[in-house]
Nucleic acid binder design. Structure first.
Lengths: 341, 341
DNA sequence: CTGAATTAAGCAATCGATTGCACAAAGTTC
DNA sequence: GAACTTTGTGCAATCGATTGCTTAATTCAG
């Protein structure tokens, strides 16, 4: 038994004017075409009755719902909540709400969820879970829906994207290790079907080359997931390969934590015997010993940047937006790296 | 230049029938009133044109948007993402989407965000951030909006709620400590303006009483926030009070982690010298040494339970729902507790 | 074979807000 | 003071889907 909502019609009846007049009086832009005294009366009646505009109705007419869609792989992954807060910090004050969906990095699910968002008439989409090539989101963008991608670009498309400067991060980290005297450096790479895994591996090769560090293929192991178990498994693989190394650069923090744990189980000390580094600087990292040396990426900032670009697109300022936004990263040296023995 | 969406009218024109016929043919319930052959033709045309129903338009007419609102204090708090996934696991397969908002436990913000949700015509709200007395959400429920609260009940209201059996959790933990020989047990309580802080302190007093453990007021310290810094500060306060104790039961994991850290800084070993326990069993806890003994609450399960209740309310099965749902908790004994010295 | 019952599909109102256009009253110009 | 602006408000169509009611067509009973 939903209590009846107050509508423009109610205010019109109350004040004795036409609903269109009420509509205009309540619209900050149109307001100036109405006599001030009438505006006051309408405003007063609206407040007295507790009027709240029905955005569904307005949305049907104007094709704007003041709602955006946000697609992420999985909200339980700690790097995403700060991104969402970053997005919210920009959009919420302007009256936007967000519908958040988890794709689980599943293509079919992503396609379905994209429809879920479009059916609800979202004004734009921030997509932090794009697959390498993503026809559905490209199509949506081509149809005129404002779209920004986060953490990854869609190949061969005009969709603006925001990424962290992972190249620089990997390079700084490698330089840090080099300065500590490491020259036999292993890499535990992330899943190659995920953007970050692939990008960071490529960055590793490039940076090693730049710094004249020999890359030995036997010292590169690829994880199938970004988690501690895989980090441990990869480290074990590295050890049993028999090639010596004094440092392991991991594609993310969780892999690094798993690697350190695996070392500990074998009585190998990090950082005394082997240095290990992570990537992302996820929350709670400073509670885990040894404190992990890692690369901090701007999560909140990335969310904000994406939201600002989306705003421009939604306001038809498409010209003003740059296709690419690269956010700086920061090397965070803590305890898991030490001079090579 | 948004590409024109296909509407019922387009399909009607294409197939030579009336839009109302198209609408009925596409509605699984109304479909039976239409000749099968016509349904097939319409279905085929809809598929061929790539028709997607406009939920905004449908929502205006039917007052159902297939969208629910979820209010939480802060998505970056690790206990909430699993709750959201639990909610999603129930609602998403049924076609619902969620608008998630962060209240930051701020009353004004909550009131504003509640309007944000109502303006968008959400079919119901799951509120995991209610304050102790919450006139705005009570009013919304009274107006007929389906509401379920999570983790806390609204006093003096008929709003169904889902909570974890915190009483049992505290009691089990206390019994665990008692069995280990502890009888001077301190409590680091959470903020008393938050539900969990208050509930757990009350539970602590009750359980201590039941187990005939003396409660000394000097051994109860209240944190102002649920974080590590406050945990450390409270532990310091306890130590400087001079009253001896052999165990600290903390109102949540983060307070416990801060307490352990503070102990370590003073050369006091946990668990050898003092046992420390947490609450929640948050993710990554098993990566932090010593592994924390804690109480596991059902986060995903709580989300699911709340979603199921909301579904019943939204389908006008209000009679079938019980006002209270209490989910069992589980004692997780790890390394931070040991026999009293 | 007529009249009632059933079935299938169309008609039109509706949800609430927005907005182009019409129109009347007041103000301005020469 | 006639012609023309300007200003403020009303009128009515519109967005797209839903649904009660009507009408037309078919089936069935007696």
């Amino acid at each position: 038994m939903q209590k009846k909502r107050i509508t423009l019609k109610d205010i019109a009846r109350e004040t004795g004017v036409h609903v269109s007049t009420v509509s205009r009086a309540l619209d900050p832009v149109e307001r100036r075409t109405i006599t001030e005294e009438v505006v006051k009366r309408i405003q007063a009646a609206a407040d007295a009755l507790g009027y709240r505009p029905n955005r569904i109705a307005a949305g049907l007419r104007t094709n704007r719902t003041m709602t955006v869609g946000v697609m992420i792989p999985d909200i339980t992954n700690v790097i995403f909540p700060p991104i969402l807060r970053g997005i919210e910090s920009v959009l919420e004050p302007l009256g936007y709400a967000s519908i958040i969906v988890n794709t689980d990095s599943d293509r079919d699910r992503e396609i379905r969820l994209l429809d879920v968002l479009r059916d609800r008439g979202v004004d734009g989409i921030i997509h932090a879970a794009v697959l390498r090539s993503d026809p559905s989101i490209s199509q949506a963008a081509q149809d005129g829906l404002p779209v920004v991608t986060l953490n990854r670009k869609v190949e061969f498309s005009e969709i603006p994207y925001v990424i962290n400067d992972e190249d620089a991060g990997i390079c700084q980290m490698l330089r840090h290790l080099q300065k500590l005297g490491h020259n036999r450096i292993a890499h535990i790479a992330g899943p190659q079907d995920l953007s970050t895994g692939q990008l960071r591996l490529a960055a590793f090769r490039r940076a090693a080359d730049d710094l004249s560090i020999a890359v030995e293929e036997a010292l590169i192991v690829t994880a199938t997931r970004f988690d501690e178990v895989e980090g441990g498994r990869c480290l074990t693989t590295l050890l049993s390969a028999g090639k010596p190394f004094t440092a392991v650069l991991c594609a993310n923090d969780r892999l690094a934590l798993g690697a350190i744990e695996a070392l500990r189980e074998r009585g190998i000390d990090c950082p005394r015997d082997i240095s290990v580094t992570g990537f992302n600087d996820m929350p709670f990292l400073d509670l885990i010993r040894p404190k992990l040396t890692t690369v901090r990426i701007q999560q909140h900032g990335a969310g904000r940047a994406a939201a600002n670009i989306l705003l421009q697109l939604m306001n038809d300022n498409a010209d003003g937006v740059s296709l690419e936004t690269v956010l700086p990263v920061e090397l965070v040296v803590r305890e898991s790296t030490a001079p090579a023995r």
